[in-house]
Design a protein around this nucleic acid. Structure first.
Length: 865
RNA sequence: GCCCGCUUGGUGGAAUUGGUAGACACAAGGGACUUAAAAUCCCUCGGCCCGAAAGGGCUGUGCCGGUUCGAGUCCGGCAGCGGGCACCA
């Protein structure tokens, strides 16, 4: 038996695929197009198992669709701008650019070793001017189209490092590097008007039927459309009104206070004369900008002493608080509190001893005796204690309250969105420069298109805090394009989500002189299958959907929805290990001792096994894909990624699992080697008749073809893997016992040799998307001329996939009592008779009256007694 | 805190979407082959009970309740775990 040399073989096929340019998408093609895309990686240094999983899943789809006759676009690129490059620059003194490009070189090699069917001729890196110059161009058009504006907005400010911090860089209210307490600061920043498309983004979710329901739901909640009312409270002794948004105008008679955000202009005005309020606001600001932090902190308020007057009763005064849970970004940055019917308001009212008046009585509860305890009542019911609203249901009361507000000029019905405009300004170096110039006379002036790209300067230093673009001696000093007077370049760069919001469109024509080539992008878009982690369910996907709309508006693309199909994969997890001192250990630092316990490789100290968690460098529970591929080959790594765990669930990486995958690749090879001598020669004509052993093989083969096709189509790759095990189990059962080695199959073998050839040719083609190298090798061993990647997907013969009989379960009162092998599609009454005649069923019925018999054809018969 | 998921043997999971729970695999145990090891092959494998065995009974899909002839699957409640929360990508 010839040995299967993994390394050599995998390299051989990879070289051949590259030489034949197998995976380059055709620009002109009669075949239908299929665009499969995996979320492109951030070049962090080396690929991790999450990448291996993501790209394996995508490659299965790409190779499968290719075999099914599609003109497949399957590109790869690099999400190459970002914070880690700057952190590396600060920590190691390397330039973010060289750090990034070196990482790309390493990771490209790693991906190539996986044997992915990628069109490398379309590779892009977003940090390259040939990419971001187009982004700058589109920004200017968005600006022109009114989709971009500038406003003051809050950031986390590290007063020591003199820099803006990402939320993840704020730990317990302090800067991660400096340890200094973080402040919130206002900066003028650029925004994309994503809210202009709020309704479109919301409504189009319905049409995304090939997206996971949970992602659509998350986006729906994120956009958070809610109908309600704007109420304009008069303020006692002041001229201006306090604007408040509420979804519950029906509960206005249950109001007991108003609360405004610490960032509300009124709060700032009052604080100017009130040091205590000033201190309270400062305390709120120390929390930073993270909503997760703001929402978990203890709810606190500060009574401003100002009174708001109730819109329906000017004599009714409500205290106005500044409250730390009111967000300036949502609604009007102010609320009215109705403690009886909102939990947060209730907690607040109890804390500050404010009145709690129920105004909605639950159905079937006596309104007179209805009181509120620790829990607010948020359900439907009948309005009480509410003057003209009394007796109405919640929905009617909302309408009535809004009518009255509008009539009285005290407010109006309105729609609010939770979605906020997308802030894209970053005060960082390693990002795409925002192409505008600030002029003292002309204001904000766009960089003329002919002057694009605005290139990042190479000569920057990271030896002092702040934005290197600000410190650069000359970069920001330019003349105003309009008046030619000295002016200042914008030193903000784009959020890196901007690059990832349109890269899929760029892949259609990656070297075009314009952001997109309309013919190409109209041919390829939308992406037919997009694959990536759920962690991007909201932001990246929503921003991309916005970008498609904006690009369509500006004529760069013709689709509003960039991703027709979406699949969100689970994470790759691994056990965690600790040494006796509690320090994390890499799996490679842990070995199994003779007694089966885990010990450290160095010094054989006992190891504590923690639970399995997402692979992360901080816990050291990572396995390097390159080491796995070196040792077992790409096919094994890919196979393991596809086995067992359904792609949308988390996958537990285990040594035993990889070993199992490895053994299977070896087993496949042994099987094909053993089968070759008893197989009919390539291209042999189909025998006119088959004996039963051959027919059994053929039925298994065709059922496997049908099953695997179905499984791949529906992303049930783990089921496809199980089918392969069953298929190979069946085949080895035929081949190993007593089949003569070297004995050539005659015509007298009942077609067995032919059936085996059919089986193995199908096997090679079916396994191709998953283990492409071994599949090519098998294909070659089978005596095929061309490459397997150019071979079509096998078809299943329907007459061979349906068995003549089916096993039917017979239940008595829902409990399984017997199983019967009955002819397929047997008439219900005949099946019923057969079931009742069964001795085990008779015993269970035990002479009792049969009340009803439910017959589900080809499935189950339930006898009810 | 808010939004969204997930939970089936020792383990990963399967179950034609309301119809035989545990396919397939891993681990474990037993056996064969071998001087030995590795590799390979065969057998057993949710729990409890009856039986010498063949076989049979009960129970079982995180927990509590409901709908149904029938629930892992649908509904209500609870618990645990995970993802996201707008400057990580």
């Amino acid at each position: 038996m010839s040995r299967y040399n993994v390394k050599e073989t995998e390299r051989k096929w990879q070289r051949l695929w590259a030489e034949h340019r197998c995976f380059e998408a055709e620009t002109q093609s009669d075949r239908p197009k299929y665009y499969v895309l995996e979320m492109f990686p951030y070049p962090s240094g080396r690929i991790h198992m999450g990448h291996v999983r993501n790209y394996t899943l995508g490659d299965v789809v790409a190779r499968f669709k290719r075999a099914r006759g599609f003109n497949v676009l399957h590109p790869m690129g690099w999400d190459a701008f970002g914070l880690p490059a700057e952190n590396a620059a600060i920590a190691q003194g390397v330039h973010p650019g060289s750090w990034t490009y070196e990482n790309i070189a390493v990771m490209r090699d790693q991906l190539k070793a996986m044997g992915l069917s990628l069109d490398w001729s379309r590779e892009i890196a977003t940090c390259h001017p040939e990419y971001y110059r187009h982004e700058q161009r589109m920004f200017l058009e968005f600006l022109e189209a009114g989709l971009v504006y500038r406003k003051e907005s809050w950031v986390n400010w590290d007063p020591v490092d003199q820099t803006v911090l990402a939320n993840e860089q704020v730990i317990d209210g302090r800067g991660w590097r400096s340890g200094a307490p973080v402040e919130k600061r206002q900066l003028a920043q650029w925004f994309f008007r994503i809210t202009a498309f709020a309704d479109s983004l919301l409504e189009s979710l319905n049409g995304l039927d090939r997206w996971p329901a949970k992602v659509r739901l998350m986006q729906e909640k994120w956009i958070g459309r809610s109908e309600g009312a704007r109420v304009l409270f008069k303020l006692k002794g002041r001229d201006e009104r306090l604007e408040v948004f509420t979804t519950r105008p029906d509960t206005l008679f249950g109001a007991s206070f108003c609360a405004i955000s610490p960032d509300h202009p009124l709060a700032a005005e009052l604080a100017a004369a009130n040091p205590e309020l000033q201190a309270f606001i400062a305390e709120c600001r120390r929390l930073g900008t993270s909503e997760a932090v703001l929402e978990t902190v203890e709810k606190k308020g500060f009574d401003t002493g100002i009174k708001a007057l109730h819109p329906f009763d000017p004599a009714w005064e409500l205290p106005v608080y500044v409250a730390n849970f009111v967000l300036m970004e949502y609604g009007a940055g102010a609320i009215f509190g109705c403690p009886a019917h909102d939990q947060r308001d209730l907690d607040f009212a109890r804390k500050y001893s404010l009145p709690v008046t129920p105004v909605v009585a639950p159905p079937n509860v006596d309104p007179a005796g209805f009181t509120i305890g620790d829990e607010a009542y948020t359900g439907d019911g009948v309005i009480i204690n509410s003057d003209f609203l009394d007796g109405l249901g919640v929905a009617k009361a909302k309408r009535a309250a809004i009518e009255r507000l509008e009539a009285a000029g005290e407010g109006e019905g309105t729609v609010a969105y939770r979605l906020r405009d997308w802030g894209v300004s970053r005060q960082r170096y390693w990002g795409c420069p925002i192409p505008v110039i600030h002029c003292a006379d002309c204001g904000t002036v766009p960089v003329p298109v002919d002057d694009l790209p605005v290139l990042l300067p190479e000569d920057v230093t990271f030896d002092r805090p702040g934005n290197p673009l600000e410190h650069h001696p000359s970069w920001k000093h330019v003349n105003c394009p309009r008046c030619s007077e000295p002016a200042r370049r914008e030193t903000d760069t784009f959020d890196t989500f901007v690059e990832s919001s349109w890269y899929f469109a760029r892949f259609c024509s990656p070297r075009a002189e314009t952001p997109t080539d309309r013919a190409e992008v109209d041919y390829w878009m939308p992406v037919d299958q997009y694959i990536g982690g759920v962690e991007h369910a909201v932001l990246h996907l929503l921003y991309s959907r916005f970008f498609s709309r904006a690009m369509k508006l500006c004529g760069y693309i013709d689709v509003e929805e960039p991703f027709a199909g979406l699949f969100t994969q689970g994470m790759v997890c691994h056990e965690t290990y600790c040494d006796p001192s509690g320090a994390w250990l890499f799996p490679s630092e842990v070995a199994k001792a003779a007694d089966g316990d885990l010990v450290t490789v160095e010094g054989a100290k006992p190891v504590t096994v923690g639970r399995s968690e997402k692979m992360s460098k901080s816990r050291k529970n990572v396995v390097d894909p390159t080491q796995i591929i070196d040792r077992y080959g790409a096919d094994t790594a890919r196979w393991f990624m596809l086995s067992d765990s359904p792609p949308d669930r988390d996958l537990e990486w285990t040594e035993a699992g990889v070993d199992g995958a490895w053994r299977f690749t070896q087993r496949l090879w042994r099987l094909i080697t053993a089968a070759t001598p008893i197989m009919a020669p390539a291209g042999a004509p189909m025998p006119s008749a088959f004996g039963e052993p051959a027919m059994a093989i053929r039925r298994t083969t065709h059922k496997t073809i049908a099953g695997v096709t179905d499984d791949i189509e529906s992303f049930h790759f783990n089921r496809a893997v199980a089918r392969f095990y069953e298929f190979t189990n069946a085949l080895s059962g035929v081949i190993s016992p007593g089949q003569g080695q070297g004995q050539s199959p005659g015509n007298a073998d009942g077609g067995l040799g032919w059936a085996l050839r059919e089986a193995f040719e199908a096997l090679a083609r079916l396994v191709g998307p998953m283990m492409p190298h071994l599949a090519e090798e098998i294909w070659q061993t089978l005596g095929q001329d061309g490459l397997l990647v150019d071979a079509p997907w096998p078809d299943s013969d329907a007459t061979l996939t349906v068995e003549a009989t089916t096993t039917i379960a017979v239940q008595v009162n829902g409990k399984l009592r017997a199983t019967l092998d009955l002819p397929r599609d047997m008439p219900a009454d005949a099946a019923e008779a057969a079931a009742l005649a069964d001795p085990a069923v008779q015993k269970a019925v035990d002479g009792k009256t049969v009340r009803k018999v439910i017959v589900v054809p080809n499935r189950v018969i339930n006898v009810v007694v």
